[in-house]
Every structure is written in C-alpha cells, then in structure tokens.
C-alpha cells in the first residue's frame, strides 16, 4: 500500500478568514482517488467551525472509504472536535507513526 499524503498545516489560526485559501491548498494536494491523508495540525493554535468544515469537505472528497488521521492536535483543536463530536470522524493520533499505522488498517 502506498504512503498516505502528508499535509502539514502551517496556519496558526484555521478560521473563516483563511478557510477558502486553505481549501484550495489541500484540494491541490489531494488528488482524486486519494484515500488516505495524514494531517499534521501541530502549528494550528485555534480552529473554528469554518476551518473544521474544510476538513470535512476533504474527507467527503476522498469518498466513502477515505480516511484522515490527525496528529499534533492541540487543546483548541481537540476541544472543537469534541464539541462537534467530529472526533469520531477523524482518527486522532499521538504521533506520525501511530497515524501511519492507523491509516494502514
């Protein structure tokens, strides 16, 4: 199985102000047919529902068997994922190795 696409998000705030540009960025990285993405959110200190919506749109674009593993989620990102109960939609991992293992499954 090929390596998942690794996307390191470099926006400190993944909010409505950058959401359209961020959506374009990841759309360019994740081509049609890709099914596994490792998303590094270490640099993200705050995310709002619009930023989260972009991650959902990415998952939808990957199709029914698409899978996104998230690493580096800080307190603000984790809080939003828990509040919205989307922590069940994405695979939250403590390290890249753990994420790669999760994406293999």
């Amino acid at each position: 199985m090929s390596e998942p696409i690794l996307i390191r998000v470099d926006h400190a705030r993944l909010d409505a102000a950058v959401a359209p540009a961020f959506k374009d960025e990841i759309s360019a990285r994740v081509t049609a047919g890709e099914r596994r993405v490792l998303l590094d959110l270490s640099a993200v200190q705050f995310m709002d529902s619009t930023g989260l919506g972009v991650l959902v749109s990415l998952l939808k674009r990957m199709g029914g068997d698409g899978k996104i593993a998230v690493v580096g989620a800080g307190p603000a990102v984790l809080k939003l994922l828990q509040l919205t109960r989307l922590d069940t939609l994405f695979t939250i991992c403590g390290s890249e190795d753990e994420a790669r293992d999760a994406l293999q499954g």
């Binding site: 529902s49 619009t50 989260l52 959902v56 998952l59 939808k60």
Partner: peptide
Amino acid sequence: HFAESGRGMM
C-alpha cells in the same frame, strides 16, 4: 456529521 457548515450556533 458530514455537513460542511451549520455548527456555529451549536
């Protein structure tokens, strides 16, 4: 779960 918006009020 797969809605891309509409979570703000919640």
